[in-house]
């Protein structure tokens, strides 16, 4: 693997790890481990922890994948490994 490709792979891993940190924090953190803490707060008629477990996590996942896909396209172009 030449240096350009190594740098691309490093940047890729960094992006994936930061996305997965958000993924885990919102679902396991806010939705399960800290659900009692978040349930003290309300958003609309939802206890917040309950909302994270049944709606908020799903919306976060969705945003994460689109963010990741867009950032990866930029990385592809930046390192000259884009497909078109």
């Amino acid at each position: 693997m030449d240096q350009q490709h190594q740098a691309y792979w490093k940047a890729n891993i960094k992006l994936v790890i930061s996305c997965l940190v958000v993924w885990g924090t919102v679902s396991f953190g806010a939705g399960i481990l800290l659900v009692d803490f978040f349930n003290q707060f309300h958003i609309g008629g939802y206890p917040l922890g309950f909302w994270f477990a049944q709606q908020g996590s799903l919306i976060t996942f969705l945003v994460l994948i689109f963010y990741y896909a867009i950032r990866m396209n930029r990385l592809d172009r930046h390192y000259g490994v884009n497909e078109d």
């Binding site: 659900v35 477990a53 996590s57």
Partner: peptide, 8 residues
């Protein structure tokens, strides 16, 4: 609440 585990 526990239904959330299937959703997530």
């Amino acid at each position: 609440y526990e239904g959330g585990m299937y959703l997530m």
